[in-house]
């Protein structure tokens, strides 16, 4: 597996190629961690050259999305404290960016779909 990282205007695209399995997902998570530590939460995973992904890859994606959710919740909480907002309908969920996974092949898309991951991550063929 190889990962090419492109960061522009606080938006990150990871071009991944090869297989995301139990061994390579360690590196995958490490790269995602670095991006999240830099407070970048708008992330696109380009799967154009990903031929295979096991549940190890899904776990990494779940981990990253959960981190993004908690980071967004923290930001929103701080904003609310500063502004002393009286808005009652402030919905953190709407502000939370979802991971984008694009150019997914049929086999990998099926993995996302069968596990229900398409509900909380933007997955596009």
């Amino acid at each position: 597996m190889e990962i090419n990282k492109i960061i522009e205007n606080n938006i990150c695209t990871l071009e991944i190629s090869g297989r995301i399995d139990t061994q390579t997902s360690i590196e995958f998570q490490k790269v995602l961690d670095e991006i999240l530590k830099a407070s970048i939460i708008n992330i696109t995973l380009d799967f154009k050259n990903v031929e295979y992904m096991s549940s190890a890859g899904l776990r990494t994606i779940l981990y990253a999305q959960k981190k993004i959710n908690s980071m967004t919740a923290d930001i929103s909480e701080n904003e609310n404290i500063i502004k002393s907002s009286d808005k009652k309908d402030n919905n953190v969920g709407e502000k939370t960016p979802k991971l984008n996974v694009i150019n997914v092949n049929d086999e990998v898309y099926e993995v996302f779909e069968m596990t229900g991951f398409t509900d909380f991550v933007n997955v596009k063929k």
């Binding site: 096991s54 549940s55 899904l58 776990r59 779940l62 999305q65 959960k66 959710n69 993995v111 069968m114 596990t115 229900g116 509900d119 909380f120």
Partner: peptide
């Protein structure tokens, strides 16, 4: 069986692999 309809906050890691074996 693994519950695939759970919200992300309730998702647990365990059980996903076996579920995928059963599905495939």
């Amino acid at each position: 069986n693994f519950n695939t309809s759970k919200d992300i906050s309730e998702r647990r890691i365990g059980g996903l692999g076996i579920f995928m074996v059963k599905k495939t």
